[in-house]
Amino acid sequence: MYTQALDVPDIAAQQAAPHAHGASPAEANFLARIARDEKIEPQDEMPEDYRKSLIRQISQHAHSEVVGMLPEGNWITRAPSLKRKEILLAKVQDEGGHGLYLYSAAETLGASRDDLVDALHSGKAKYSSIFNYPTDSWADIGTIGWLVDGAAIMNQVPLCRCSYGPYARAMIRVCKEESFHQRQGFDIVRALCEGTAAQKQMAQESVNRWWWPTLMMFGPHDSDSEHTGQASAWGIKRISNDDLRQRFVDVTVPQAAFLGLTLPDALLKWNADRGHYDFGPIDWNEFWRVVKGDGPCNAERLNDRVQAFDDGGWVREAAAAHADKRARRAVSAASVRIAA
């Protein structure tokens, strides 16, 4: 599913942009290509910081897809109808597919998937904080599709036009699937809202829990964002965090009204002067707490990933050993033929 705004500080990767004073001719040429809206391709020259920054963002995004399989995967075995079970299973599988194409996109920049996955497992690399919240009820599966995938789409649609070709192309494919997921999520919530009193209550409680964490997915306010300036000069980030968040609120409020659900914000109201909904302050302490590892499920998520990877070690080794044996047999069969 989702990319968290890339401006979440990552100490290791934070470097001042070198081209600000006295750009080299290569850098000037690169920035001119960006200004002309040309796509940068893997074999093209690019500044080292651009490459690093993209690897960081794309791999964070890939990790988010893979970790994002866990909270929803939690309900596959308990989905309340066979149709919902099938849809959810396919959805979680799609997220794994998104992880795959994003790791491939990162590899085009010279990163190795093993190193990237290591960085996730050691806790060095970040993934979207939204997945550190628990899925307590079936309604959360609907809410994640409707709100979380909805926010992800809002964040990712501009990335379909980002300057790095392989990332932009991966995002086009991902966004198509995400909008499908979002409709399915909305449909789950709609069925609950049209259902029994207990189902409707389940939906309302779920929206109460997910609304604020979803707004946090757009990242810190523009005034507090550290990487936005650089990322927009490089054609990676096209629209600011606050603008995306406002767009999301503006499209979601009428959807909630349609469903008969209340969004848990007493300050939420239409502002005719601005032509937008006003909304209450975000609890940034909670945001930073979860980003820094202290959310409700951070330890569990990472632990699940590490355990799956460790448990699978012997499987990957067996596959490599067998491929090796076959290759050696092919070589010796070929030399027998030559000798004969």
């Binding site: 399989m69 396919a90 599988q93 795959l100």
Partner: peptide, 19 residues
């Protein structure tokens, strides 16, 4: 098989098993 989803030994296998 669906219990494996998200916990497979490699991403490719996770996807294949879910198929």
């Amino acid at each position: 098989l669906s219990e494996w989803c998200g916990h497979g030994p490699a991403l490719e296998e996770d996807i294949a098993l879910t198929n």
